[in-house]
Nucleic acid binder design. Structure first.
Length: 877
RNA sequence: GCCGGGAUGGCGGAAUCGGUAGACGCGCUGGACUCAAAAUCCAGUGUUCGAAAGGAUGUGGGGGUUCGAGUCCCCCUCCCGGCACCA
């Protein structure tokens, strides 16, 4: 074999071997259990970034590991190919989004292949191709006819200069990113998926997903936000007409404390009041400025203005003033909220600011309810959610006060009594409500899947008949940033009505790109199927996805939409089962240090870490940094997610070219556990490369010996010790593989190599050979090229993927004596060697007799002795 | 603002059920090899007092439970992800 480790040679050779064997084609007819391992598909932005490398390495490690465990593995790959960046690139370079996207795919596919991923490329899916989105349009029509998709108006960011709708990302400090114009809210008609119809199921089925991280399930549950409350009305009279102002509250026990009502700027009452009040009209106008992103609305200054309208409190009959508040959103709930300044932080701030009355109606209960009270749980408030006058404690129990006939009631009693009275008056009822809103999917953009609807002046919105699908998106178009180009293309939108044959107009909006990524996992089961969205038998075979891997940033939207789509497809009879992803692994971000120099006007020049040299003191603490090119200092910024804007990205291709894919993969797996943030380190990459070189060198040294010889006879003590070290590490590695903690798997392989190197001159070759075979198999999912090459070179076999996973030889782990730690008062004072089966009394006696203990006790008797078998003895002096 | 997560040596991280804090790697220091350097190998490396033996101290901050807390409970600070049109 070659004396030196040469990743370029061995990696291309191994990849050619896998290609020629078609090693990673998933088997449609196999006795083995299936394992569908899916990584979130990439958006073809140009070239791979480190986040991709991390994601796909994790997926490949799991795929190869399961393959060696005897599974029939499906690991597919594809392209989430519609999206906004293609339109931006098109405008910048005057290239159609399609051409840009396809050339990116071609390049990135080569990059993925050079990583040595065990992907079944025969199942590649590209969402911008008609053979894919055709089925999305087909499903759209079925759901439209069913009423699961409907049309209503919704609020968007409007750029009044470019005359275009802006994505939230394109709104910077309330202004359009290209025009710089102040953004306005605008109501436009859109198509919606009725996801709220599935809210309860989406919530409840989270309990059927033990393989999902708790934090993701919690986030989804909170996002869906089921609440139990009361919907009730404030009656009022306007121009002699009786009407009701409806609101919803989860704190009906505080209704007696309402001192005003706030409505959204777009609320009919606000519109009415503004007609006669120019100041209010100006305020309503002002509320329309700014974007629609919730984070902006929630953090902006709370402002309001009174109307001259007042409504009647449904229980007290008192008059309550109506205010317009910029923080009340028309699209949430009723577009109006009751305000209880005494018991709500936001209302409190608002009341203080505008001098509105504050009326306390609950207080902390002084007498705790008896413990046998069955409903005590419901009366215990979560202090993080309910704040009482800002002075609250954990598990505060509150009772109503100052509330007339409702005085002295606990939360649930007060809600019951108040809801009953409201119901009796026809002014309210108990109601569960969801925070989740219906999913608006219309986008006024070009590079997306066309919505298959035809607008007919006589027949209304008519779905495009199935036989006319797909509605193809013209591909040779360059958008100009001023609205959708499709709306300017008569050859696209001019059509005839499928129902009456009259002149009609085709819908020019496209779908949210989240729609494509909501069902691609199902398409992989039968990617070429041209008779349906999925082939039912194939879907039955491969679904659900056994392991899904992707960034934590997708914890809510993408994962919720995909779960929703699975249920939609189930209800269409396309798939079985209720959930698409059995197990979920959410991967952390790849981050790197940042460096910059200050420029005039508060701007910064970001400098790539590769061009910077960090200076350290004698204890290796960083004390400064300078640009290598000019030797002058640069400022050390924070450690942040790799990005173009901070110029702290490292190109994976450069790493693969310099060290090989195995080194890149090894570093990715070793530097952090998969769900944690990973900090890039050039020195860490060097270390990974060094380790692989040591593996190669040791293999080369031992290559001439018979490493496959069976272990026989009584082993020398040193050989027994070596086997024990190896099997301890294997045991650890197996456990860590099972819990996806790959960094400690790598650490275990390093321990094995260290042990083998130390013992190589004196150890039995059979023991060394056994250890090396374990090492290579443990490494093969992570660094497949070197593992495969050495496996063959050392004569273990032709194909490491076809071997069995190493098992722990428990007999190699046994020892006669074990070491126990001795603590005095919980502090480590010494250690003790005892027989492995020594009983507690014997251990206690030995420990008490130990000189360290004698010294600590200084003649006094021990108060207490705690023996933890196999671990320690703690003596309480 | 709301929801979720995180904080351990100079750095990345380990510690599986409340039981030896710092595995493994990087970096650094010293040594071997070399004309020299690189590479490689060997040794050391939380902080602090000490010549050493040994002691004290130490897991973002404050409090608590326990024989014993990085781990459990309460409060706080800072950082990161998401917030419905980035993907």
């Amino acid at each position: 074999m070659q004396a030196n480790y040469s990743p370029k040679d061995i990696e291309s050779a191994a990849q050619q071997q896998w290609d020629s064997q078609q090693a990673f084609l998933a088997q449609e007819n196999s006795e083995k259990p299936k394992y569908y391992c899916l990584s979130m598909f990439p958006y073809p932005s140009g070239k791979l970034h480190m986040g991709h490398v991390r994601n796909y390495t994790i997926g490949d490690v799991l795929s190869r590991y399961h393959r060696m465990q005897g599974y029939n593995v499906l690991q597919p790959m594809g392209w989430d190919a519609f999206g906004l960046p293609a339109e931006n690139a098109a405008m910048a370079n005057n290239v159609p989004p399609a051409a840009w996207t396809y050339s990116n795919i071609e390049y990135m596919k080569q990059q993925l292949k050079s990583l040595g991923l065990g992907v079944d490329w025969s199942r590649e899916v590209t969402t911008c191709k008609p053979d894919y989105y055709r089925w999305e349009q087909w499903l759209f029509n079925r759901l439209f006819k069913k009423g699961v998709i409907y049309k209503k108006t919704s609020t968007v960011n409007w750029d009044p200069v470019d005359n275009t709708v802006l994505a939230n990302e394109q709104v910077i400090d309330g202004r359009g990113w290209r025009s710089g114009a102040q953004v306005e809210k605008r109501e436009i008609p859109m198509y919606f998926f009725r996801i709220t119809q599935y809210a309860d199921e989406l919530l409840q089925d989270l309990d059927t997903l033990p393989g999902w991280p708790e934090q993701v399930k919690t986030m989804q549950a909170n996002w869906i936000g089921k609440s139990y409350g009361v919907r009730f009305a404030f009656p009022y009279e306007l121009d002699g007409k009786q009407d009701k102002l409806w609101v919803y509250t989860t704190r009906a026990d505080t209704i007696m404390g309402v001192t005003f009502v706030a409505v959204a700027a777009e609320h009919p009452l606000a519109t009415y009041a503004a007609q006669k009040n120019p100041a209010l009209a100006a305020f309503v106008e002002e509320c329309k400025h700014g974007g629609v992103a919730e984070a902006d609305i929630a953090t902006m200054e709370k402002k309001g203005m009174p109307t001259d309208i007042s409504v009647t409190h449904p229980l007290t009959g008192e008059q309550v003033p109506v205010w317009v508040g910029n923080y009340v959103l028309m699209s949430y709930g009723e577009g109006a909220v009751m305000a209880v300044p005494a018991h709500d932080e936001r209302d409190f701030g608002f009341a203080k600011k505008y001098g509105l009355p504050i009326k306390q109606v609950i207080e902390r209960s002084t007498a705790a309810p008896s413990t046998d009270d069955a409903s005590i749980e419901e009366r215990v408030f979560d202090p993080t959610k309910w704040k009482i006058w800002y002075e609250w404690k954990s598990n505060t129990i509150v009772r109503t006060v100052n509330s007339g006939k409702y005085d002295g009631l606990y939360f649930d009693q007060a809600v019951d009594a108040i809801a009953a009275d409201l119901a009796a008056k026809g002014l309210g009822e108990k109601k569960t409500q969801f925070r989740l809103r219906d999913w608006g999917i219309s986008r006024q953009r070009y590079w997306g899947c066309p919505i298959p609807i035809i607008h007919c002046p006589t027949c209304g919105d008519v779905p495009v008949p199935d036989e006319q699908l797909p509605v193809k998106l013209p591909e040779n178009v360059v958008p100009d940033g001023a609205g959708s180009p499709l709306a300017k293309m008569p050859e696209f939108y001019e059509c005839t009505c499928p129902q009456c044959g009259g002149k009609a107009r085709r819908e020019t909006d496209t779908m949210d790109t989240f729609v494509e990524s909501s069902w691609y996992y199902a398409r992989y089961a039968s990617p070429q199927c041209d008779t349906g969205m999925v082939d039912k038998a194939a879907a039955q075979k491969w679904l659900p996805v056994d392991q899904y891997i992707g960034g934590i940033e997708h914890a809510i939207l993408h994962l919720l939409y995909a779960r929703f789509f699975h249920k939609l497809m189930r209800d269409e009879g396309l798939v079985t089962g209720n959930e698409p992803f059995k197990n979920l692994l959410t991967q952390g971000m790849v981050v790197a240090p940042t460096f910059y120099r200050d420029l005039p006007a508060g701007k910064k020049l970001w400098i790539n870490p590769a061009e910077v040299e960090v200076e350290i003191d004698a204890k290796a603490r960083p004390i400064g940094a300078k640009l290598i090119a000019d030797g002058k200092p640069v400022v050390i910024g924070g450690t942040e997610k790799m990005s173009k804007s901070k110029n702290n990205g490292v190109d994976p291709q450069a790493i693969i070219d310099a060290y090989g894919a195995d080194t890149a993969r090894l570093f990715m797996m070793f530097a952090a556990p998969p769900d944690q943030q990973l900090e890039w380190s050039d020195a860490g990459v060097e270390g990974s490369y060094r380790f692989l070189r040591r593996v190669w060198n040791l293999s080369a040294e031992l290559a001439n010996h018979d490493l496959k010889k069976a272990i026989s006879g009584k082993l020398a003590e040193s050989d027994q010790a070596l086997r024990r070290e190896i099997y301890l590490a294997l045991k650890q590695a197996n456990f860590d593989f099972s819990r996806f903690q790959f960094n400690t798997v790598v650490s275990a392989t390093m321990k094995i190599l260290n042990s083998l190197e130390k013992a190589k001159a004196s150890a039995d070759h059979a023991v060394l050979g056994e250890g090396l075979s374990i090492l290579l198999r443990l490494l093969s999912p992570i660094t497949p090229h070197i593992a495969q090459t050495l496996w063959k070179e050392l004569g273990y076999g032709d194909d490491i993927l076809a071997t069995t996973w190493p098992e722990v030889d428990e007999s190699a782990l046994e020892q006669d004596e074990i070491e126990l730690m001795i603590q005095v008062n919980g502090k480590l004072r010494g250690s003790l060697r005892v027989a492995k089966d020594a009983d507690k009394a014997a251990i206690e006696q030995l420990a008490l007799a130990h000189e360290v203990v004698q010294k600590q006790l200084a003649g006094a008797p021990a108060k207490k002795v705690i023996v933890v078998p196999g671990r320690l003895v703690n003596i309480v002096a």
